[in-house]
Design a protein around this nucleic acid. Structure first.
Lengths: 354, 354
DNA sequence: AGATGATCCTAAAACGATATAGAATTTTCT
DNA sequence: AGAAAATTCTATATCGTTTTAGGATCATCT
């Protein structure tokens, strides 16, 4: 085996034409072309004030001419800056509609900025902390954006403890101290109850909001408080809740109906649960818009194109993503400024019945 | 400690730690702790054969102990390797269902490998070449994955000319020479016609496949050839086609029906067009499964949960993404091997009518 | 004993960028 | 005119890693 090692070392393997190694121009290239020193070129391109205007112009001209683009690895090693914002997403139930729209809107928010978007997925069976820790430890992003926030999210406390910039889609118990965008799910729950009551509904079921995340807790609280207020019964269906647990959700609603409890109003906080509810209701012989009303959070266009009439409230996911992008950038570029925060409050529903 | 003069160079003492940001351990840290030289530590962790087993074990133990993670910028600068696979996606019509599933399945394919996923979005109004050129010029990924491939896609010819590793979702005219995963849309078109004919349908409309991309061209060719064969009329509806152009697609189908042309079978190659078709057909008073049949490509679960009975053919997007991930990695790690290629051929449809 | 090799490690250089300190020149001031 | 100051550039060091070449030590062979 020793001899094998030796021969392996001596034979110059595939050193002929390594594809893709056409070298990119570097600062050194420009320095050679202009007769300047490398740091001078760097500072000229950076717009430093102690480089003469004429030199700056000359350097820029040469750089443009040869198509110079800074090597990110060099910048990153020297400055620690990656120019990357990482969006950390769970793929537990697949990347679904809402998440997909979030991706594109965050991308839109980063458009024409110095920042690039990196999607870091993690899987349901692994520690949600893992991708966050990886990003921090390898410094592979300047900031992270998190969603599916729990009230005392350990990722948030970790990021705060190491001083790493971030923004969240959802609030924690430390909500005053970090950037976030949140949707007022308490108001959503309240609005749902009010709208259904206004249509004469009295037996309302709130479908399966997650109780480990604040948004589900808020939705329940908002709906129940308003139910108390107006003297209507608001029941909470527990069980599977995410977009891709539609089957379980549908089964849970089926079971609820089968149990004989009265039902004439449904509140669904996700597209998946809305679809499950529509299906379930139809099977049970109830008719949307007539014997039962469905109040739904509208996020994807498909819901608009499905025939039965349902009440929808608009959630502005496009705004969400753009805001989170700005908030994350601000956390990087202006760490001393107060964190950017926004709470989207739903105020009215409309009948989607085209 | 004994060889103090030797180790005394410029080891940053623990007591310094000046700023608030706690520094990550580097090879230097391990070198100081073990009394070895930095390259020795590097080679020990890399498993080089000329480092003694005991040293390797000691170094690894210390590395694990202090939680050493290689700084990616350093590796990238030295080796040129980023350990990133970039998935380049258009957000023209938003990141939609099919795309979302592609993202999660590519992520799954990269799971537990050395590679990370980077989503690089581009916008409909900008040059599709731009993100690709950026990645190549800044060397910010080791390979790219492209979709929405045109037959003579300029991104593909560019990547080939610079020798940059890539894989495509769809084939080009150079299909023999690069890695790809493709769905046999010709077979899909043919199968659709055959299935509809088998149900007694004779007036078939193929809904709006894009004619500038190969997959649309193939679908048309497959459907028309089979139509010829069995002597049935297959018409092609031109117009908007992507998932998010549902409104236009629906309007085009409405117009087709209004024109009085006979129609008893529909073939839809995307989820969006299927939803549009269902809506359009219902408006026109046709009944799915009775007066008309819909043959659809099934990719998202929502289609399964919508009430009317439709014929669906399974497209394995999960496999697509995993394969593309492997193909891209292979292009990076084994450039000399023949490119990984796969053509998914649909063979049967099933009635989604639960 | 002296030469040869094997084993295990180190020194130096390099990737591409930027920060810092200081050098060379010109301008301004007294 | 001589000194101080401003201007414009260069030299050097550095970020963290890996590659290359070579050095030191000890065992083995003739």
């Amino acid at each position: 085996m020793a001899t094998e090692d030796k021969t392996k070392k001596n034979i110059p393997s595939d050193s002929e034409t390594p594809l893709g190694t056409r070298k990119q121009p570097t600062l050194k290239t420009i320095a050679a072309l202009t007769g300047l020193a490398v740091p001078t070129v760097s500072r000229a391109l950076g717009g430093a004030s102690d480089i003469s205007v004429s030199t700056r112009a000359r350097v820029r001209a040469v750089a443009d001419e040869i198509g110079y683009v800074p090597n990110r690895a060099g910048v990153r090693l020297r400055t620690g800056r990656t120019n990357v914002i990482a969006l950390v997403l769970s793929t537990e139930h697949e990347v679904m509609n809402h998440t997909a729209k979030l991706i594109s809107s965050v991308a839109a928010g980063l458009r024409e900025t110095q920042f690039n978007l990196n999607i870091t997925p993690y899987f349901g069976d692994e520690d949600p902390m893992k991708p966050v820790r990886y990003i921090v430890e390898t410094r592979s992003a300047d900031a992270v954006i998190l969603n599916q926030i729990r009230p005392e999210d350990s990722r948030v406390s970790y990021l705060r403890s190491v001083g790493f910039p971030f923004a969240t889609h959802g609030r924690t118990i430390w909500e005053n101290e970090h950037p976030y965008y949140d949707y007022d799910n308490s108001a959503f729950g309240a609005l749902g109850v009010r709208e259904l009551i206004a249509r004469g509904r009295r037996n309302i079921l709130l479908v399966a909001p997650p109780t480990d995340q604040r948004y589900g807790q808020d939705m329940i609280a908002g709906a129940q408080a308003t139910g108390q207020e107006v003297g209507a019964k608001v029941r909470i269906l527990s069980g599977a809740t995410s977009d891709n647990a539609m089957q379980q959700t549908e089964a849970a609603i089926d079971a609820y109906i089968a149990s004989g409890k009265p039902l004439d109003g449904l509140i669904c906080g996700s597209n998946g649960s809305s679809i499950a509810a529509m299906s379930s209701v139809e099977k049970a012989g109830l008719i949307l818009g007539e014997t039962v009303d469905l109040f739904s959070k509208e996020a994807i266009p498909i819901l608009k194109r499905i025939r039965p009439s349902i009440l929808t409230v608009h959630e502005d996911v496009a705004q969400t993503g753009r805001f989170l992008a700005k908030a994350a950038m601000a956390a990087v570029l202006s760490p001393k400024e107060p964190p950017m925060q926004f709470l989207e409050v739903p105020t009215h529903a409309s009948l989607m019945d085209y």
